[in-house]
Nucleic acid binder design. Structure first.
Lengths: 158, 158, 158, 158
DNA sequence: TTTT
DNA sequence: TTTT
């Protein structure tokens, strides 16, 4: 009914950009979000999986890099799929619709450069067709083999 | 660094109240949070695990029931533990520090009644000692056997 | 850079629907949001102005009524305009892009009924053209006289 | 009932630290939060007043400076007071309970240095006595004259 | 494994 | 009255 997540943390590695068979961009990365520090304990963090789609996915792939401080806004999603041993697996991730790059850096070096100089960061609206994930038959897009991931067009969140 | 989750949904079942060996109250429940509806699809929801501690845990156990519309504020946490086959398992949950009961109902019937008539809903502060979960050796408090769950005092989030 | 507000409260009166000269729907209402109760004090609340645009404005006008418990998501905006004594006035409001009706009631009675039976609640995206308010020359849309309010098409938030 | 604001922006000036007559620290600053950019318009921002109390107030005064990128979490509050012409004035501000310094810089130079090297940023809990502001008789703590501001001990938010 |  |  209402589902909002806001995080600030650092990328644990470079983002991964892929395309669905229909050619829709998907970028995935993990954010290390420090927990409130308590003395007498070692530092701790939560490692939270983020997914972005379409234009935002391409912007993230172009501008984010491992270690960068980043703010993410989105919704919490729990997908499930059956793995190769026929066991149900649950995947929790944040489907981001807004990503802010809090450290600029000289990015874009080893990837195709973002064309314009004015990157737009927020997931464009559209028809609010938020349905990525959830159905039993769905495959995990993060378990892949280099080939285009097997999700259909209507697996998209908007 | 910053980690905030806000959800509105309905309890999938009655909340479960337990106590740590040190006598600290823990309540767990699951919130069904409807996804934005898109035509041509069946209705979908995310089922999100919520944990509350101490006073808030007891208030939730006393006042929440299956089906109730509820707002939850907290932080997203990813714990991990090794299951009985020695395999690492990851558990995602929202550690709530604020819970709002959006439907009152005639609650408290089949449980011990909340003493006062003015339930306080938000997790009292304290020493900001947020460290529940995360370490490798930790056991899942939700895998239990009726006996007090095996987590030590310093597994508490505040 | 990032600007997110989430509120739950009750309408202090029925919402007001108007149209810009270009025919764009704007609905305004005020939410009474209770503060955390502290003993020895009288109950207190913040009265927060909400604005919605376009389709969401019409849905709110059709389905919300005074007293209804409502959740609002949006961004905090500070507009300013010069009043009739030439003094700068600052207006703070939440521009909502998502509104959840937490109490249904038998609404729509004294207004035109929402056509379909499946009201959509969230502000459809579009071209992310969020610029309502802010410029010096702008008039306050909430100071009006029954006539269409004097704001141009590009005063719209998206 | 639920009231949560999360902002990322830059300080428009150095923060101002004061003390209530009872000796409680209050720090105020303004955050410039850029609006989503829309082409064909000049860049715009909302200027949002932030208040912090006690330990968090002192940490903010020690570590924040004009221009610094900063994340703020808190609740939206509308206070009112009667100005010297007997007119009711409304003040909107965010009462922060969590502030994150997203740019470190070499701070603390021209003020008393923060004692420890490990600044804690979030508003310590306590007795959840959130009642700052709101009552008719209250004076605006930000209209002052160099002397300790005239608010009593129970004007504090926790 | 799930709620209205 | 405002920040990069």
């Amino acid at each position: 009914m209402l589902n909002r997540v806001i995080l600030i943390g650092r990328l644990t590695r470079d983002p991964e950009l892929r395309y669905t068979p229909a050619g829709v961009a998907v970028t995935q990365f993990t954010l290390a979000v420090d927990r409130p520090f308590s003395q007498g304990k070692e530092r701790e963090a939560d490692f939270i999986n983020i997914v972005t789609w379409r234009q935002l996915a391409e912007t993230c792939a172009n501008y984010l890099r491992k270690g960068r401080l980043t703010a993410v806004e989105g919704r919490l999603q729990i997908r499930n799929y059956d793995n190769n041993e026929g066991k149900r697996v649950y995947v929790t991730e944040v489907v981001a619709d807004n990503v802010r790059f809090l450290e600029s850096g000289n990015v874009g070096g080893n990837r195709e450069e973002g064309a314009g100089s004015n990157p737009s960061y927020s997931g464009g609206g559209g028809n609010n067709n938020n349905r990525y994930g959830g159905s039993r038959e769905q495959q995990d897009p993060f378990i892949d083999d280099g080939k285009p991931i097997d999700i259909s067009d209507d697996d998209l969140p908007f």
